[in-house]
């Protein structure tokens, strides 16, 4: 992969000084630093979490991508790997964790359940996809994705990071500072998404009270 190195690919640097000299752009330096140290939040939900752990272990070794530093606190994490079924009961905690993560932050929906509810979509306690609440960057299909598929998905995330530019990223934009804040849902008779209060009220009003 050409973005793995700091140097721009079209500059030829003599071999003997390749380790000490790099010709690059600020964007590339910025993205190279970020793509090589995406620290995931230590956060497992269900079956997929086991494959996520497996991807951290010796055979797959996510440390090769700078992703081995699982942070149990959201304050130090760059990426939220939503690894498993998101239930309504769990959702407020997930949103709180997401809101506590500092920018830049990424969300990876690992597996069918996180992407859309998966095989448990029809269940009454299952959120049909974390993308209803959080902006998902990469979707990894599979139930569960094998560790290699997970790594393939994370490489996709790195590619996405490579395309970002320091000039346009939202987190330095003062006006959009709270742009990614997600209001906390409430556990009522069912999951109340407070952004949709008016809609819920309107639909419930016309519902037959059968």
């Amino acid at each position: 992969m050409e973005n793995e190195k700091l140097s721009l690919p079209n500059y030829s640097i003599p071999e003997d000084i390749q380790n000490v000299v790099a010709v690059t752009t600020l964007d590339r330096l910025y993205n190279w630093g970020r793509r090589s140290s995406v620290w995931p939040l230590m956060f497992g939900l269900a079956c997929c979490a086991i494959e996520m752990i497996a991807a951290q272990t010796a055979r797959y070794d996510m440390a090769r991508f700078g992703m081995e530093v699982m942070r149990p606190t959201p304050r130090q994490a760059d990426m939220m790997l939503v690894s498993g079924t998101v239930t309504k009961k769990m959702l407020p905690s997930i949103i709180r964790l997401y809101n506590q993560m500092p920018e830049p932050k990424y969300v990876v929906a690992m597996g069918a359940c996180a992407s859309s509810g998966g095989p448990f979509k029809e269940g009454y306690n299952v959120v049909a996809g974390i993308d209803k609440f959080l902006p998902v960057d990469v979707y990894i299909p599979g139930c569960p994705p094998t560790p290699q598929a997970l790594i393939a998905g994370l490489i996709k995330l790195q590619e996405k990071i490579d395309k970002q530019s320091i000039k346009h990223v939202t987190w330095y934009n003062k006006e959009k500072k709270d742009g990614n804040y997600v209001p906390m849902p409430i556990l009522g008779p069912d999951l109340i998404d407070v952004r949709r209060n008016a809609e819920i009220r309107d639909v419930a009003a016309v519902k037959e009270s059968a």
Binding site: Y124, V127, A128, L187, E199, R201, K207
Partner: peptide, 25 residues
């Protein structure tokens, strides 16, 4: 999508005349 078949457009079901703003947790 299953969402399209549900009046609340999601995996949700509220009792009739439910008002989320008046709900006390």
């Amino acid at each position: 999508f299953a969402e399209n078949k549900n009046p609340f457009r999601d995996n949700l079901n509220f009792p009739a005349n439910f008002d989320p703003e008046k709900y006390e947790v």
